[in-house]
Design a protein around this nucleic acid. Structure first.
Lengths: 353, 353
DNA sequence: AGGATTTCTTAAAGCGCTTTAAAGCGTGCT
DNA sequence: AGCACGCTTTAAAGCGCTTTAAGAAATCCT
């Protein structure tokens, strides 16, 4: 009465295929991996038999025996849409270089350390970390064990490879765009703590200064969620109906915040872009919806990932021993939430209310 | 000048730890796995040395040597928020039963077949498939190889284990709730093709019939995206300002659709729930936002997952050889997008009829 | 033909860990 | 003493695959 009585039959092993064609396991292994050696006739026979038996190599055994695993460990936060998109690109890029992926996600009960340990246990040769929060020192220490590339986060004194978009520059683009449309009262909804948030905030500040709008700088506290956008939106809407200096445009930390903001504004009867222009950041699928049409900053993530994977391959196969930091310029995607400011200059009152 | 000069030192092996404490690898293995045998003193020495050396067992080797892998393969679509949430729960549930996870996602260039193959190659003992689209026959065939449990999709003639929520019942709850509030003109935004969409649509139809609202049945075509909600919202808003029979409530296929709908309605100046009540489905994080406050149906996914993992464990360790289908009742989460209908201004028949 | 090449095939030694049967070793018992 | 008995520890045989050096076979030369 044990579990094997279920009719499940053991999966065929390399040896079974070898026996089937009357060759040695070595030859079969060679054929199956496309290595040089076996003759065309042998190849054919082996392939046929393997197919007929439904043979699939055991990855654990193969990993163990091979000198290299050709595995790249990817740490991500599965709750993030953005990471999901990135992983798709990583898959493709890795495949092109002959690497496979092993994924490990952080969850509420699984911190970065544990996620990375899982990765290491699976013998991966390099680590691709999507937006890690871990201290730089630990990352550098990891990098002493195997190549580590950090995507999306900027780190003071590297010790790892870094691939990221120029966040400050992205926000700059937004501000430039708005100024070009004639805006001056441009507020910014902040992304909270974190290096990315800091970089974007900085980009905003600097762009404002550059345009001589020092006293129009206005940072509304927030975080990375719709909730923050909603709060900011309600605040802005209240101000609109009040008398304080009114923003005619709002730049947000990311698209999620922007979407929350848009929602709150629309419910408060504030027209976008009629009364207020809004710019997001990320070019997320949501922002692309025709009805939303959010003007936003695109990080060009396929390129980002391509660089990240290339960085890994360079260190693994190219013999590079130095660290590199690649900063990609973001691009502005202008859609329908930005327009010139309303004619009424200073104290604006809501139209339809 | 080879790659090893980088100062990376080989990771310590079991044997190294053994040498360090002057014991055999066997003893160390025993200690590290918490198996019975070694004395307390030995345990301590080994643990200390292992810690000092930073030893981590090689998973591939361990997998290969062990009879069982204690691995559950999870196939998911990383683009889906919902799957992301589920994976968190799977992690926890699996851990409690002493299993670990191996993840494999489908992407645009990686279909379910490939994703599953990756999983099989890693020696997992069972498969947990989140909302697979694959034909039932293939799933059944897989199940002959190893236990398969399908989450969230209903399948005609199983051949696999199934764990899902009663989708029709969920929509029924929504309709009941609305009827209880006095609504009669209840429209439904459809989720397109697919078995889940069919079940929910059915639930709507049947609930309407049950309440004697046969001629109020109105299914607005759509799919599973915000876009569909937006289109539906614009349609409903147009009707409101026109003269056709007006819905006073809209039930949607899922929260994403509902959010799109809410957005379109609010931009059209339609008040929710003042003019129209809206009900979603999924109890997604978005619906929980205070400002959105979407009334929605909760699938109770932690319980869903708990059952799914239990089903696997039963077959793996419990010796169950039959297939099971577990259907969990969903629950309604009433928030702020539902209220009694506005005092009927138009030709609507009074409720209850 | 004989030897030198080249081509194809395989034996055998692992990869790092688990597992089982058996070996040590103090005990207490008769 | 002699012995059976727990309690610890270990030798050794794999897990299924890769890889390398060497063997066998076929091909080429002069």
């Amino acid at each position: 009465m044990d579990g094997t009585e279920l009719g499940r039959q053991a999966r065929p092993r390399l040896e079974d295929v070898a026996a089937e064609v009357g060759l040695s396991p070595a030859s079969v292994s060679l054929v199956l991996r496309g290595a040089a050696g076996p003759s065309a006739a042998t190849r054919e026979r082996v392939l046929e038999a393997a197919g007929r038996l439904g043979y699939r190599p055991d990855r654990a055994a193969s990993l163990l025996a091979r000198r290299r695993s050709r595995l790249i460990g990817v740490m991500l936060d599965i709750r993030s849409d953005y990471h999901g998109e990135l992983v798709e690109d990583v898959h493709e890029a890795a495949e092109q270089h002959g690497y496979d992926l092993v994924l490990s996600t952080i969850t509420r009960s699984r911190d970065e350390r544990r996620a990375v340990e899982t990765l290491l246990d699976s013998r991966c040769e390099a680590l691709l970390l999507l937006g890690p929060d871990a201290p730089a020192a630990w990352l550098a220490e990891l990098d002493r064990q195997l190549p580590v590339v950090v995507v999306g986060r900027s780190i003071g004194s590297p010790g790892v490879d870094i691939v990221r978009a120029a966040d400050d520059q992205g926000v700059s683009l937004s501000v430039d765009h708005l100024v070009g449309l004639g805006h001056a009262q441009i507020a910014y909804v902040d992304g909270g703590a974190g290096e990315i948030a800091a970089a974007r905030r900085d980009g905003y500040r600097r762009a404002m200064l550059r345009h001589g709008l020092r006293d129009r700088i206005r940072v509304i506290p927030g975080d990375h969620t719709e909730e923050a956008g909603i709060r900011a939106g309600m605040r802005v809407a209240a101000v609109l109906t009040g008398h304080a200096p009114t923003p005619t445009a709002v730049v947000t930390f990311n698209d999620r915040v922007a979407v929350g903001l848009l929602d709150a504004l629309s419910r408060a009867g504030v027209a976008v872009p009629g009364d207020i222009s809004v710019v997001g950041y990320d070019d997320s699928p949501l922002s692309r919806l025709a009805h939303v049409g959010l003007t936003t900053v695109s990080q060009n993530s396929p390129a980002l990932i391509e660089h990240a994977v290339t960085a890994i391959v360079e260190r693994l196969d190219g013999g590079r021993t130095t660290h590199t930091e690649i900063v990609l310029p973001p691009g502005l995607v202008v859609r329908t939430t930005t327009a010139p400011p309303p004619p009424s200059p200073d104290v604006g009152h809501p139209p339809g209310g």
